Amino acid sequence: MKYNEKDIEFANQILTRRNKLDNELVEAWMSNPLHVEMLKEFVAIREEYTNWDFEIIKGEERERLQRAITRKKKRQLVMRWSVAASVILCVALSALYLWNDSDWFFEQKFPQQANWEQGKLAEVELILADGKRVPLGGSGRQIQDHGVFGIKDDSLQGLTYVQAKALDEKVTVVLYNTLKVPTGGFYQLELSDGTRVWLNAESELRFPVQFGTGEREVYLKGEAYFDVRKDVTRRFIVHLKESNVTVLGTSFNIKAYGDEDYIYTTLVEGKVRFTSEKEHEEVTLRPGMQSVLNLKSGKTELKEVEVEQFTAWRQGRFVFPSTTLGDLMCQLKRWYDIDVVYLSPEAKGYEFRGAINRDMDLKNVLAIVEKTSNVVFDINGRTIKVTIKNE
Rank of each mutant, 00 (worst) to 15 (best):
W104D: 00
G147P: 08
D153N: 14
V124F: 02
A114S: 06
N100T: 03
G138P: 07
A84L: 06
S139A: 10
L136W: 05
I127H: 09
S102F: 00
E107A: 01
A84Y: 06
I151Q: 04
A92Q: 11
E125H: 14
A122Y: 11
V91M: 13
W99S: 06
Q108M: 01
G131T: 07
P111Y: 03
P111S: 03
L156R: 12
P111D: 01
V87M: 07
D145S: 11
N115D: 14
S139R: 10
D130Y: 09
L121K: 15
N100K: 10
R141D: 07
A129V: 08
I88W: 09
R141A: 08
A122V: 10
W81S: 07
L93H: 11
Q112H: 10
G150D: 12
F110C: 01
A95W: 05
V124E: 02
N100P: 03
P135C: 04
L126I: 12
D154H: 15
V91E: 13
F106C: 03
D153Y: 11
E125Q: 13
Q118S: 15
G137L: 04
F110Y: 14
S82K: 07
E107L: 03
F105M: 00
A95E: 14
W81F: 14
A129W: 07
D101K: 02
D145R: 03
I88G: 00
G147K: 10
Q142F: 11
V134E: 04
S86T: 12
P111C: 01
G137V: 04
D154F: 11
L89Q: 12
L89H: 13
G150T: 13
E125K: 15
R141C: 04
Q118I: 13
K120S: 15
L93V: 07
